[in-house]
Design a protein around this nucleic acid. Structure first.
Lengths: 218, 218
DNA sequence: CTCTCAAGCTACTCACCCGTAGGCTACCCG
DNA sequence: CGGGTAGCCTACGGGTGAGTAGCTTGAGAG
């Protein structure tokens, strides 16, 4: 035990920049998702990444830059995962269903990515919040387009009890909350989750565009 | 301008403890809702409250204690506001509608309270997150009770496409997201918001318990 | 008028953490 | 073999902010 106790053979060799950046981003997402932006320390991130702190600064810039890089990478991942599952020539309801399935599959597989995007990014304020909000708005508008498409196909106009944008905001929120709920119930498959939401919303929406409206009684 | 420039008459006189605590809590909610827990500084809170920092510590304890006091006060306010609007002997759908109206009225009036509870409390982690989550779970269970009551009244059992708890989680999430959306659209009344949600969810739910189910085609 | 007590403040300590200066070592090319 | 370069580190500066020590001042009692 004189020259062997320092683990000389495997000492995290010199690696190309791309690999280190991946390690750093992975660690950053993990730490940010656990503690949030402000409570996360660069020391802990460097520790988790198995890299010293100056590496982070030379490769990815300041803490804010690093957080931005995380947000962008995870947002891109999420959008790509959803678009990969969507089939553009299906009817609107099936498009929505497939999009939802991909979404729930992604959240289950990369729950830290989802946490960073959904919970932490909004609390930082400034450019990132705007960026994530933008992504969310795009998602809402996408859904709104499907909804309106289905609505006009059935020949429905503007109604007092109906706002495509508000409805889509509610739908996206329902999808997100169900995602959070599903994190605690891993045995529910993504198909079942998507079907629940379709049954909730689509059926109600169908009624609505067919003129059947809920009103407060008396 | 020799003896009048220091505003000698009104100099924030010595006040009873209860009043100071209120001032401090109001300021804390405001600052926490703007910056989040970690980015908020005790100096800014004391500044906004018009009180020096040691006062906060003698009256309300550490920063964590202060945040806890904020959360508890605002959560109590919210629950009381909702319960004040609910009429227990109405049918389930009307109970839900009245609860939603009260909720949206509260969010519009005390948007900072809502922000602290919904966005900031979860990111701190630990006891507060648990506390807020508990409140949310109680809300979900309350809604689930209404939903199940309406379901059994119409004689529906367990179905594969249906889970009361999951549905309620989605509903509560939809309500929350619509609340966020409504913050940017102040001209929409609380009654309209509540009606939108009822049309979305209740109609779909009605279809569901009457056996009309959405299924993916092919 | 004076003594006492509590309300309230200024100014400080100490710890934490972002960001960096400067040095070391392995690999590559001539 | 020697210089250059790129991967990588230890160790520190500086700023910020939580929490506190100890003083000042107003108000009531005698």
């Amino acid at each position: 035990m004189s020259e062997d106790d320092q683990r000389p053979p495997e000492r995290a060799r010199r690696l190309p920049r791309a690999v280190r950046e991946r390690q750093i981003l992975d660690a950053a997402v993990q730490v940010f998702s656990r503690h949030g932006y402000h409570a996360a320390s660069m020391d802990e991130i460097s520790d988790v990444a198995g890299v010293s702190k100056p590496m982070i600064y030379t490769y990815l810039g300041s803490k804010e830059d690093l957080f931005g890089a995380c947000i962008r990478r995870e947002a891109t991942r999420l959008l790509e995962a959803i678009q990969a599952g969507v089939k553009p020539d299906l009817p609107p309801d099936m498009q929505l269903w497939h999009g939802l399935r991909s979404f729930y599959r992604f959240v289950a597989e990369y729950r830290e990515s989802w946490t960073v995007l959904h919970r932490q990014a909004l609390t930082v304020g400034g450019a990132f919040a705007a960026e994530v909000t933008d992504m969310r708005v795009r998602a809402i508008q996408l859904v709104a387009a499907l909804v309106v498409s289905a609505g006009t196909r059935k020949g429905v106009g503007e109604q007092a009890e109906f706002s495509g944008e508000g409805l889509s905001a509610a739908l996206v929120g329902a999808a997100e909350s169900l995602a959070d709920w599903a994190l605690d119930h891993p045995d529910i498959s993504d198909g079942v989750l998507a079907s629940w939401l379709m049954n909730l919303v689509w059926l109600g929406f169908n009624d609505l565009i067919e003129g059947e409206v809920w009103k407060p009684s008396e």
